[in-house]
Amino acid sequence: MSGGDEAGRLVRPFTLTGGRTRPSRADFTLITTVTAVDPPPERAVRPQPEHTRILRLCARPVAVAELAAHLDLPVSVVVIMLCDLLEAGLITARPPRSFAGTPDLDLLQKVRDGLGRI
């Protein structure tokens, strides 16, 4: 059946993840920061209620783990919805700082200074 995917989307069962169990992208870690695109792209599809909730929560940058906690949903479920939002151009995702081997001294010094202030 051609176009099955499109049709599937239209009659999508009312589940948060549309029956999928795996994110289509692996680029959401617990501390990936997501931010709603504001204003949303003009041609964006109308988000579902749970998606809208996410968009509200990430009006300011927020980590995936925080989103999951606030939504009271497993991270794995939230990530699947984030994939939808990312694909729709409704959010941006910033991956955590990656250290190829060792973190750099500037970063460490910054963390140390920051800790000194708490």
Partner: peptide
């Protein structure tokens, strides 16, 4: 059937956040 994960946050500066898991 579930495993819980606790975490906290320390804002280091405007452009750096530390998460504790």
């Amino acid at each position: 059937t579930t495993v819980a994960l606790d975490f906290g946050r320390i804002t280091i500066s405007d452009d750096l956040v530390l998460y504790l898991f």
